[in-house]
Each structure stands twice: as C-alpha cells, then as structure tokens.
Design a protein around this nucleic acid. Structure first.
Length: 470
DNA sequence: TTTTGAGTTGTTCGA
DNA sequence: GTCGAACAACTCAAA
C-alpha cells in the first residue's frame, strides 16, 4: 500500500509529523504540487519562487530523488493519483490561508468518500490558532496578552521529531513532471546570482543560521536586532516560511540559549509569527480587508509615480532608498528598515498599504501571507494592536539612530558614500560645496526628496483625523 | 456588568 | 544636549 505525504510549506524531513505518519503507513510517495490554478491572485512572487525552486531541489536530494512534483489543481491531481494507484492514505501538515483551508477540507472529504485515510498535522506553528484564545473563547486582538497569557501558559511545544531513515518508497509511474525545473520557478533573466550568494537553501543551511545566531546574534539581540548594518537578526524567516526548519526546533533551541531578555525578545518574535497566523485564521480576508473597519474611510491617495520611486529606491531619502535597494538586490530587507519604508509609503506618501503588501510579496524571499498582511496592517495603523496614528517614523532620525555610522546606507546608496555623516540622511541640507566634494548632484545622480517631510507628516495626521467618527 | 489598567518598535516641543 | 510631556482617544483583557 502507498501512503502519500503532500509537501506544502514543510520542505524538510526533520521534525515533520505528517511525513513520519505516511512512512509508518506504507510505501512513501512524497509529492509537491504548485497549485496556482484556483488562486491566481495569490500566486507566489518571483523571489519566493526562486527560494522554492532551490528548496525543492534540496528536498528531492534528501529524499534520494523520490520527490514527485506537479503543477495544477491540487484536488484533481490527488484524486487522479488515488484513482489510478493503490493509495491507502494521504496526509499533510496544515496551512492556514482561507483558500487553502477550504481546498484541503474538500480534499479530505473526497478522500474519505473514497475510503482513503486523510490526516492533517501541525508542522508549521508552535500552537494551533484555535487553541490560543481568551477565556470566553474569542481570539486575542492584543499581542502582549496573546503571548504572555495565551502562548506562555499553553502547553510547551513538543520536542522536534527526528528525521526518518531507511525510507521505503513507492515505485512506479505517477504521472509527475520530469523534474523541479519543469515547474518554471526560476527567473528567465539572470538576476538571481547575487541573491543566492548569501543563502544556503537547504535544511542544513537553516541549522547553520540558527547556530550562528546562537553564537553571534542572540547575546545582544534586544538592541542589536535594530541595527541594519549588522547581521544580528536570526535571518531564519525564509527558512521558517518554507518549513526548511520547524518552529519547534527554533523554539527549543532558543530555550537552550538561556533565559535573559535577549532570548525572551527572540521568543516573542516567534510569538509575533504565531500572532500573525492567529489573525489570519480568524480574519481570512486580512490580505485585503482592514482589520479595523474605521480605516475603510481612510482618504488614501493614488500616485503611481510616488509608488514607483519608492519601489526603485529613488525617493531622495537615503535610509528608505537603502532599504528598497537591499530588497531588490537581495530578496531581503532588515526588519527595522521594513518598518521605516512601510511608514514612509503609507504615511508620508499616503499610498494604500496594499501597494506595499504586494511589492513585498513579490520581492521578499521570506514573503509570508500571514506575516506580510498583518505587518502592513500594523504599520498602516489599521491592524491588530497597531501603532497609534501619531507614530510616524522620521527617516532622517531613524537613519541617525539605527545606522549611526552610515555603514548600511552607504552600502546600498553608494552615490552618497562620500557624504559626511551629518548630512548622509538629509543630503538636501548639505552645503553645495560639500555636495560637490562628495560628487553628489541632487536631481542628477541622486534624487531630490519626493515629498516634504514636515508637510507630509501633517497631511497624514490630518488624514487620520478626518476619519474619526464623532 | 462594570471597572481598571494597559497597549512592539516614535516625534516634537519646550524647559 | 537632555529630559519629560504631549500627542488623542479607544479598545482590549481580565478581574
């Protein structure tokens, strides 16, 4: 008898409860389906697909070349496999997007109607969203009680499971594509070389990151994670998104790192990941609908010229441009800078957070449906537990505070490399002689600011005020 | 039901 | 330069 494990966002063999269950139930048929048929609007972005491509190749290697890949409608593909082969069981680790929950529910019902066992597991979260709720059974809307009262009082996540050995694979022709390459996940133009330099995309790469973080990052995490010039964050997000490492592995590893405020801060970041998934679970339309409905009346403006300048890192605000260029060139952006560029787009430029959400979805290696939507809503002020409206980041102050030596900004905005620190974050204030000496010609080789900071801040405050209901 | 304390990440202004 | 207060109410969580 054949048991299928359906890989989705759990592209690993270690600590994979569904994979183990399938192995125990029969000869393993490990499959992956690129299902973008029923949800073209949620199709993966370019950077994410690139990561997926390399993850699948690594996974196939770990499975001794037995991974079968498909492209198309997941329901149809699984039912066809079941109709044509002797399948006793199909299992998977859960996903939480609305369209996937609906699809998986249908598949489960169709399998049961065929008398085929169907089982799902938790392989992607520390706690299932429906288990972390308030005393009255309703979901939390504020992070601190969610994490402290909810997560930390819930049963400790179980210890990671070992990777299987000596797997018995199903053999035969299962109508799959010839190889991962046939999924066409790689870019047609050659922009991925630089992006891949700094990432080892396999399970070992994730473990190495974790080890490095334990050795170099965590000891000063609470403060150090705010400094984009340094690699003092874990950089585990793309690995966790695709499941190359399980959250349980990271959680228990964090427990081994000690018990101080740095470790607590790191664990609370894992808590924010859980919180985002809780928000998604209880607000399936979170990708496009404001959690705070008052914001439905927010007077967004629409100016594609501004959005375009933001995307290309040509706003004239060096810390913003540094972040947006880091993103475009590497598929990653430091978390502190994500907040600064996010605040700038929605508040100073007054562009709808959807534009930021879409751009990040397309360009980030770690693009995650739950975290991306929840975080854009947070920065826009319409999310759960969002910042108060008057909290508008000043890109000059933020640059001076969190990139004090200018190292990060100069790395990504080299045309300003020779400018002294005093004017690095506000080149338009620099004396003409100084600009000339630094080789900076505003409006020629580096843009003038696309908005006035003070005026745009006041405009944003007025916009927030305008939707008050009184 | 009512009450009470609290709520990721900031900025500006004036003393 | 440093520091505290104001920003503006509102909603949430839990007793």
């Amino acid at each position: 008898m054949i048991a299928i494990h359906w890989f989705r966002q759990d592209l690993r063999i270690a600590d994979n409860p569904s994979l183990l269950s399938a192995i125990e139930s029969g000869h393993l048929l490990p499959i992956f389906i690129l299902d973008e048929v029923n949800n073209p609007e949620n199709a993966r972005g370019g950077a994410s697909k690139l990561w997926l491509h390399h993850s699948l190749n690594a996974l196939n290697k770990a499975l001794d070349g037995n991974l079968r890949v498909y492209s198309g409608d997941a329901k149809a593909i699984i039912m066809q496999l079941c109709d044509e082969h002797n399948i006793s069981k199909v299992c998977w680790n859960r996903c939480y997007e609305g369209w996937r929950r609906e699809r998986d529910g249908i598949i489960k019902a169709q399998l049961k109607a065929r008398s085929i066992e169907a089982e799902s597991f938790n392989g992607s979260l520390l706690w299932e969203p429906w288990t972390i709720v308030k005393g009255d059974g309703t979901p939390y809307k504020v992070f601190t009680p969610f994490f402290k009262n909810g997560c930390l009082n819930a049963p400790e996540p179980s210890q990671p499971l070992s990777a299987p050995t000596n797997i018995q694979y199903a053999s035969g022709d299962f109508g799959s594509l010839n190889s991962v390459n046939d999924l066409n996940l790689q870019p047609t133009i050659d922009w991925d070389k630089v992006m891949l330099e700094h990432w080892q995309i396999d399970e070992q790469g994730a473990l190495d990151r974790l080890k490095r973080f334990a050795e170099e990052g965590v000891s000063n995490y609470k403060e150090g994670r705010n400094l984009p010039a340094h690699e003092w964050t874990s950089k585990l997000s793309p690995y966790m998104h695709w499941g190359l490492i399980s959250p349980r592995t990271v959680w228990h590893s964090a427990n081994m790192m000690g018990d101080d405020e740095n470790v607590y801060t790191f664990k609370s970041e894992l808590g924010w990941r859980e919180f985002s998934y809780s928000l998604l679970y209880f607000n399936p339309d979170m990708q496009w609908a404001n959690i705070n409905k008052k914001f439905d009346a927010f007077p967004w403006e629409k100016d594609t010229t501004l959005i375009d300048a933001w995307q290309r890192g040509q706003t004239g605000y060096p810390i913003i441009d540094a972040g947006m260029r880091e993103l475009w060139q590497t598929g990653y952006m430091h978390n502190r800078v994500r907040m600064i560029v996010g605040s700038f787009l929605v508040k100073n430029l007054l562009q709808h957070w959807h534009h930021g959400e879409k751009w990040f979805w397309d360009t980030l290696f770690d693009a995650d449906f739950a975290s991306n939507s929840a975080s854009w809503q947070w920065v826009a002020g319409c999310g759960a537990d969002a910042a108060p409206y008057f909290r508008i980041f000043n890109p000059v102050t933020q640059g001076e505070k969190f990139d004090p030596d200018g190292e990060y900004t100069r790395r990504w905005v080299p045309e300003l490399a020779e400018l002294p620190k005093k004017y690095l974050y506000q080149p338009w204030e620099a004396p003409p002689m100084m600009l000339q000496a630094a080789g900076v010609k505003l409006g020629e080789n580096y843009p003038q600011p696309i908005v006035d900071l003070k005026a745009s801040r006041e405009r944003a405050l007025a916009a927030f005020k305008s939707m008050r209901t009184d």
